[in-house]
């Protein structure tokens, strides 16, 4: 049992690309990644299908008055009924991606192999986005396709991808899911705690918007538009918690601003703090 020195080992300079490769290996070799991603897809498509079925009246709410409960939402809103829950789940997955290494202390190995630490945040975000983007596309487009199929088969109104704003709304939802995952990752890295990060994601996306719009005077509306969930509502056109009066472009810019700000915070923090 000796260390094999006979076969020389060739090593290369550590770079961001190699860091991303390393994080990509980490992401795909955890079973929890695939379980979480599959759950996102199941939730989006499942809720879309259920809502569509209820809208057609073929499935009814046993406690309700028998009327179609989703009558108020347009076909697109119906298809994306699972969005709120999927967004939360994606935030949880992001939090795990950002904080789980602090729980296991694996972060010491990560930072030792990538001592230019900003790369850790960027590489982790890139690896997460690499699995999150296709997942979100499958989930959102799947929910759209299944819901439209159910609605159309029962003679309800449907929307086509070519209809005004439909494709951009769906892509907006894909973008929102990916953005929330990265927000969760940055929060997880900042807070170094899976639980704390999940709490912040849920609070920030669900509780704060709801509470704030209920409790704060109307004059605060302009500020509340800048919350991530409100900003996202401007380009997903799905009634998220709190409506939006921002234009789609402005909303997207605000959300990107959140991602950039949190990522910058995570980068500064990982450089300044001991691991």
């Amino acid at each position: 049992m000796t260390i094999a020195l006979e076969r020389p080992v060739s090593t290369h300079a550590q770079s961001l690309a190699r860091g991303i490769h390393s994080e990509w290996i980490k992401v795909r070799t955890l079973r929890s990644t695939w379980i979480g991603l599959a759950t996102v897809v199941v939730i989006m498509i499942g809720f879309g299908a259920l809502a569509a079925a209820m809208a057609t009246g073929s499935v009814t709410d046993p406690g309700g008055d028998g009327g179609p409960p989703f009558a108020g939402a347009g076909p697109l809103g119906t298809a994306l009924s699972g969005a709120n829950l999927a967004v939360l789940l994606v935030g949880v997955l992001g939090s795990l991606a950002g904080a789980r290494e602090y729980g296991s202390r694996m972060i010491t190995a990560t930072v030792t192999t990538m001592p230019r630490r900003w790369q850790v945040i960027v590489a982790k975000s890139a690896a997460l986005a690499a699995v999150m983007i296709p997942t979100a596309v499958i989930a959102v487009m799947g929910a759209y396709g299944v819901a439209m199929g159910i609605l159309g088969a029962n003679g309800n109104a449907t929307v086509a991808l070519t209809d005004d704003g439909v494709l951009s709304s769906l892509l907006g939802m894909v973008g929102y899911l990916v953005a929330v995952a990265v927000l969760g990752l940055c929060l997880g890295s900042l807070l170094r705690s899976v639980a704390g990060s999940i709490g912040t994601v849920v609070g920030g996306l669900l509780i704060v918007p709801a509470l704030a719009s209920a409790l704060l005077p109307d004059s605060w509306d302009k500020v509340l538009q800048l919350l991530p969930s409100s900003a996202a509502a401007s380009f997903t056109e799905v009634g998220m918690a709190g409506g939006s009066t921002l234009s789609a472009g402005a909303g997207a810019a605000v959300l990107i601003g959140w991602v950039v700000a949190l990522m910058a915070g995570a980068v500064v923090a990982i450089h300044r703090r001991d691991v």
Partner: peptide, 27 residues
């Protein structure tokens, strides 16, 4: 550096753990 042998993500196999670390320098 072997500073804390327990600092490993328990959900990942030993082989994949080493592959991930090695990837940072092209191993």
């Amino acid at each position: 550096a072997l500073l804390d042998a327990k600092a490993v993500d328990g959900g990942r196999s030993a082989r994949n753990h080493l592959l991930a670390l090695g990837a940072t320098v092209g191993i």
